[in-house]
């Protein structure tokens, strides 16, 4: 975590690039226009005239108090970054949670089929299909889905997370309404990411099936279903969990694009806005939160691994 924060500090503070340029109108750094006074003032305000070690210490002191600095542009500037990020975090977590659950479920179903029937037509179709989905940029998939399923054939809402009159619904309808709005974003996610799970599961099943204990299982007269559930899957699903470490980085990246396109007020949309106006404190705050999220997710996956691996669990 210290590493991540340091890298974050390094990117914003040390790399060349002048954050004051963003706030000042173009060309106003010219002395005759009095721009340099303003610039000097800004530099003092942000402590940019301090030596790098001092800034480093100050940065960590602030971080420890949950202070991520103030935004440059958001809500006319001066708004604390942490205050902008916090309310959006839950929206993003819901989206990412739903999407991951759906992707994992479908990935495991598809991976099991194509691993069991590898080399057959079903396997080729699944492998190619997931690979094509994986190669498609999510911004393109999401916009084409909106175009097809919300514009040409208007069966799904094109944007937002709830209907405009959602506050008049009863609680259950409200939840259903939100799920309805989440359908297209989650579908985009599933299409572009399902290959992570289906392909790793297929490959690890392929490694597992020729093992001797599978032959034993068959010789014992177990049905195919029993062989899969009791003998193949427990071993095959471990590599899938390992692969998910890389998957989490993609989740965040996918969420950024999907939230912007579907106008979901989460962290991703914030990233898009911050990028457009070059709001570095905000951008680095989002990056910090996203990276921490990925690290936490990986820690959870590690714990799950311990739980799912019978050899470790019983030891």
């Amino acid at each position: 975590m210290w590493l991540i924060a340091s890298l974050n500090f390094f990117i914003v503070q040390v790399l060349p690039g002048d954050p004051t340029r963003v706030l000042l109108p173009r060309g106003s750094s010219n002395v005759t226009q009095g721009g340099s006074d303003l610039r000097a003032q800004l530099i003092r305000q942000w402590g940019l005239d301090q030596p790098i070690t001092t800034r480093y210490v100050v940065y960590f002191a602030n971080l420890a108090q949950g202070n991520l600095g103030t935004t440059i542009t958001y809500q006319k500037g001066g708004f604390p970054v942490a205050g902008v990020i916090a309310p959006r975090l839950s929206t993003t977590l819901v989206l990412v949670g739903l999407a991951t659950a759906a992707t994992m479920w479908l990935g495991i179903v598809l991976g099991r089929i194509s691993g069991w029937r590898r080399g057959r037509r079903v396997d080729v179709a699944i492998t190619m299909g997931t690979l094509v989905g994986y190669s498609m940029p999510s911004f393109w998939v999401s916009l084409m889905l909106i175009f097809a399923l919300a514009y040409i054939v208007p069966i799904f809402p094109a944007y937002g997370i709830q209907s405009r009159d959602a506050s008049t619904f009863n609680p259950i309808t409200q939840v259903l309404d939100q799920l309805y709005h989440y359908f297209l974003p989650v579908l985009t996610f599933v299409i572009t990411n399902v290959a992570w799970f289906s392909l790793t599961l297929r490959n690890s099943l392929t490694d597992t099936l020729p093992e001797d204990y599978m032959l034993t299982a068959m010789a014992k007269g177990l049905t195919q279903k029993q062989q899969l559930r009791k003998h193949a899957m427990p071993n095959a699903r471990l590599p899938v969990l390992t692969a998910s470490a890389l998957y989490f980085g993609w989740v965040v990246s996918g969420a950024i694009v999907i939230e912007e396109v579907f106008n979901i007020p989460g962290l991703g949309q914030l990233t898009w806005d911050a990028t457009r106006v070059r709001d570095f404190p905000l951008l680095s705050g989002v990056f910090l939160v996203a990276t921490l999220g990925v690290v936490v997710a990986n820690a959870v996956a590690d714990v799950l691994y311990l739980y799912l691996d019978p050899r470790v669990r019983e030891a």
Binding site: I11, P16, I256, T275, L283, S284, A290, T291
Partner: peptide
């Protein structure tokens, strides 16, 4: 490992946004 797990999109965005 560190560079492998960090979310790549925000990372490239922030790099390019700052460096131009």
């Amino acid at each position: 490992d560190f560079f492998l797990v960090i979310p790549w999109l925000p990372f490239v965005l922030i790099l390019v946004a700052i460096l131009g």
